[in-house]
Design a protein around this nucleic acid. Sequence first.
DNA 1: GCGACAG
DNA 2: ATCTTGTCGC
Length: 503
Amino acid sequence: MSLMEFCSTCGILLDLNLILDQSATFCNPCFETINQTKFPQSDACDCEICCFKGENFMDQTLNSSNLHLYSELKQHNCSQNTKPLSQTQRKRKGRNKYKTQSASSKKKGSFVFKSSVKTCISIIPSDKNTDTQVDIDWDSSSPCYLVEERPSDVLNDWSAAAAESWSEEYLQDDWVNSDLSSPYVHLDDWGFTIPVSSSPPDTMGLTSSILTKPNSNLKEDKNNEEQPQHRNNSSGKNHHLFKKVGVKWKREQNEYCAKLLAEDTPEIAALVAGQRRKDDGSRYFVGGVDISFIKGNNEDACACLSVLRMPDLKLVYQRMEMVKLTQPYIPGFLAFREVPALEPLFGHLKAVAPQYWPDITLVDGNGKLHPRGFGLACHLGVVLDIPTMGVAKSLISAQGISEDEEHKRLKRTLAGAGDGFDLISDSDEVLGKCLRVHDGAPNPVYISVGHKVSLQSAVWLALECSMFRIPEPVRRADLDSREYLRQGKTEPEQFVLSHDEGN
DNA sequence: GCGACAG
DNA sequence: ATCTTGTCGC
């Protein structure tokens, strides 16, 4: 049973069998025309409810992946159908993804440019209160430049201010101006190619390619030929800021990685062997950490450490406090954002309730299952020298592992709690396990070694402390820190189970 | 060539 | 990480 679809441009009835790209709702002739068109610049819709209100488009060429932007714009410009589409309507239009994931940031008048140029990382501040939008080319041969693009006619004042502060911060780092050609060469052992030049020419290429691209602004077609030249010459209007943060962070990860222990300590081995759970009443404790955020603010967050007593999963200790996260989230470098916020929680625990010091801590993120084998769980474990393991809710692409068809097929074979399969890197190392942790939760979770624990033990522990899809220690940390924020609390909150209650 | 990549 | 709405299954 096929649905009726009409071309968004000319209105002709479409033959659905001929549409290759399901997100497209254009007939072939219109598609061809559009495909060579640029987004109209400064041609934003002005209707009250439109999510493109106040939006400026860069003169990107339309293609099948950004067609939905064009159809949205077109729809609202023609002043018809100004009501937002219902979810089912959106699904039929194939624009569900766009609506649910991007609409909120679009509303703020933010602008995100996805670089198509290799060898650089582009950053655009999306909102003065939110995280920096980071788009990274993960080609392993890419140098690690963070590039900020802000043509002055596209981004407004607050982003200019944000960019200034970023640039100041960057330039204070000694390594920014250092010669990259020698000190970092050893990183190549891990498969990274490090840029030799101290200025990133490809980035300039990116910039000029934006500025010189012919701009077919629909409203000003007379000026089309002149404008690119003009803008390209007035380079003083544009600011370009660079940072080589990835190089520094990769080096740090490699240094820590040498200290990583992916085997059970005698204590963990004994615990898993059941020697800590005999009827003499001895129990063990499992910690869980997580950080929750307020919508629209990626700096102020609530960090939480929960400790549960096993095997009854009773909460014995918890601390939540507001933290400032100064670093942006960059996939592969999550630890640099979250570890500084999580570390103090363990200091408090030691001071206040050392009797509840966890035998192992579950971390909301990956451990060895990571592009460089050193994710958040490893990082936290090594820094604090405690046993940790990673529990991630979605799969990170790393070392040949990705959510491909084969992976999806394997996931479907998992029938119940305890079922799982190894995640094997392209160099045949088992980096983690895709594991169904509970019968009621068909979605698996990704377990990997953090520090001082083997994968087998980590899997056993994950199963041992799960009542739902997410193992209880991290789940409690997640749920409670979210609730803390929801109630607008700001003062640290601590809970310690008294000795009497405990028995 | 582009996209996708924990939280 | 955050947002919303709808849907499915027990």
